[in-house]
Every structure is written in C-alpha cells, then in structure tokens.
C-alpha cells in the first residue's frame, strides 16, 4: 500500500518540515503520495512532484484551504485514507492541529512525534520531555503519525517525477473563522532549520537587552532562540521558544546565554551537535550538557564575543 504525506506550506513556499516528512515516509515504503491543500498552489504542487521519492501529488486549490483550518483539511484526508497504509504529517503546530482529528475519525491511536522508524508498525518517540525514549508498536492497521522534522534529513528537491493530480471535494462550512496571523518577519535563518542558534534566557533581563543576542546572531548568520522564561517575560515573541512546548532544534552550534537549563528547555536543544553555555551561575544545570562552558556575566561576555567574532574574517555566510 501507499503512504500519504500531508504537505505543510504557506501557499507560496513549502516548509522544510514537508521534506523531512517525505524522507520519513521513504523508510516505510516506496509509493509516496503527497496531499497539498491550499489556495493558488499550482507552483507548490508542481515543485513537490519533483522531490525525491514522490510518486504522486494530489492537490485541491480552494480558498477554504488558504489558512490551514484543521476542520477543513480533516475531511479531505479521510476521503482519501482508504488506500494508504500510513498517513504522515510533520509534528509542527500545523500537523499537531490536524492529525488527531483524522486518527479519531479512523478510530486509530495516533503516534505523535516519532524520531525513528524500526519497522512498518514500530516507532521510537520521546516522552517526558525527551527524558525517556519509548519504542512503541501499534495494533492499528492504518497508521496515523506525526514526524519530528529535525530527526529526519530533508529529501533532495529534485530526482522525483511524480504525477500531479487535481481533485475536488465539497467541504461543509466549518465553525471556525480565520481572522488574522501575526508572523515574525526576519531576514535571519529559520529557527527550526538554522545551522547556528543563539538563544537568550531570563538572564537577559529585558527585551532591550536581547539586542546583545541579535548582534551575535547577525555575526554568525544564526537564528535567535529563547527559553520559555524569556518569552513569558515578553522579551521576544512565542515563535522563538525552544523546548518541550516550543520548537525542537538540532543545529551544529547552539549558544545558550543566560539560560539555566530547565529540563523543559533541554528537551528542545540537547541533540544539538555543539552546545555552548554562557551563564554567571557556575552551578547552572546547562553546564552539565554543554561542550563548552563559560562562567561569566553575559553583559560583559557578549560584547567581548562580538569583538572576537569581528576578528575572525572567515565566518561562513
């Protein structure tokens, strides 16, 4: 049987989480079909059809799908569900919002946030904020799964030659009216896929002081992250949050500044390749997982770091 992947996109660009999810699907079978629901998505659909492993793209172009309302997406997936053994979506707020609706209507227990695939019915997923890994085997014949994007590489954007099929389906009016969306605009790399992340915590003490973080991020071409404490305090907006209830990041370099290292924060960054911690409290738990630790007042260390980085002229852009 084939595998269905639900594409995440914003009608213009395809989110990299879609590429990670297609890769996860390729470990389950060779017939991979991608469902694209959106408005004015001819280009998006065509682009996905050329991705590695994709054998078919199914799309519906309708204003009803412009804002990814879960109630509108669910009936489309259900109408197609019969022919697939597995239905996969990324474990992003998009996938988390939609997939449990599909699972319950199919009377299937969803497997959330998988990080590894053992076989077609056995998966590994983190529980307790990643303090334990569960190997789970489902008894359901149809599998509804969300995939942790950072645990699977992206597929190549070329090499596939999937067919593209437009379908139509009448969807009943949902009880949800979209009002608006407030997205943080930034020229920096996207937090969840950046090669370098510089994160600030409560130690920054104010939104104003986060400039010290952005200055370093600019010099390293890094994304900016934050602990929950920093977001709760209003230093930066919610989309910067790294951790159990925020984003999971796996950069080559993660620099944690003024972050003590609560288990909930570690859940979102402890798989990073190299971790640097800068904290004035030498007892801070973040030092236990850091490859390089510096006990220092961040208000002295960050300007010094900025100067040192200026001295290096070979920073990758």
């Amino acid at each position: 049987m084939s595998i269905l992947v639900i594409a995440e996109h914003n009608n213009i660009e395809i989110k990299s989480s879609t590429l990670n999810t297609i890769n996860a699907a390729s470990k389950l079978g060779s017939e991979i079909e991608v469902l694209v629901l959106g408005s004015n998505i001819d280009n998006v659909s065509k682009e996905i059809s050329s991705y590695q492993h994709v054998s078919k793209v199914i799309f519906i172009d309708s204003e009803k799908f412009e804002n990814a309302i879960a109630e509108n997406i669910e009936p489309v997936i259900l109408s197609l569900a019969e022919k697939y053994s597995h239905i996969l979506a990324p474990a992003t707020t998009f996938g988390k919002n939609v997939m449990p609706r599909v699972a319950v209507k199919l009377d299937v227990a969803q497997i959330s946030d998988i990080v590894n695939i053992e076989s077609e019915d056995t998966f590994i997923r983190p529980i307790y904020a990643g303090n334990a890994l569960a190997t789970v085997k489902t008894k359901d014949t149809k599998k509804v799964i969300t995939v942790r994007p950072t645990s699977f590489d992206v597929v190549a954007k070329e090499g596939g030659s999937g067919i593209v099929e437009q379908i139509n389906l009448d969807i009943a009016e949902s009880g949800v009216e979209f009002i608006d969306r407030e997205e943080s605009k930034s020229d920096r790399p996207e937090l969840s896929t950046a090669r370098i992340v510089v994160s600030g915590g409560r130690g920054l003490q104010s939104a104003e002081n986060f400039k010290l973080i952005s200055d370093i991020a600019d010099k390293l071409n890094a994304a900016i992250g934050a602990s929950r404490a920093a977001v709760d305090a209003g230093y930066v907006s919610n989309d910067y949050q790294v951790g159990q209830t925020g984003k999971v990041v796996v950069p080559d370099l993660y620099i944690a500044v003024g972050i003590s290292g609560a288990i909930q924060h570690l859940a979102g960054m402890k798989e990073s390749k190299i971790i640097v911690a800068i904290n004035k409290d030498e007892e801070a738990p973040i030092f236990n997982i850091a490859d390089y630790g510096l006990t220092a007042d961040l208000f002295e260390a960050l300007p010094a770091l900025s100067t040192e980085l200026d001295k290096l002229n070979s920073i990758e852009k």
Binding site: V136, T138, I275, N288, D291, Y292
Partner: peptide, 18 residues
C-alpha cells in the same frame, strides 16, 4: 492500541570543558 515494547534512556551527553 499501542504497545510499549521498551522505555529507554536517551543517549547522555558528556559534560564538556569550561
């Protein structure tokens, strides 16, 4: 519906250098 075959420790990170 889901059987937990095994619960294991995640790989631990070595404490690095100061």
């Amino acid at each position: 519906r889901i059987e937990h075959l095994k619960i294991s420790e995640p790989p631990t990170r070595q404490k690095g250098v100061m």
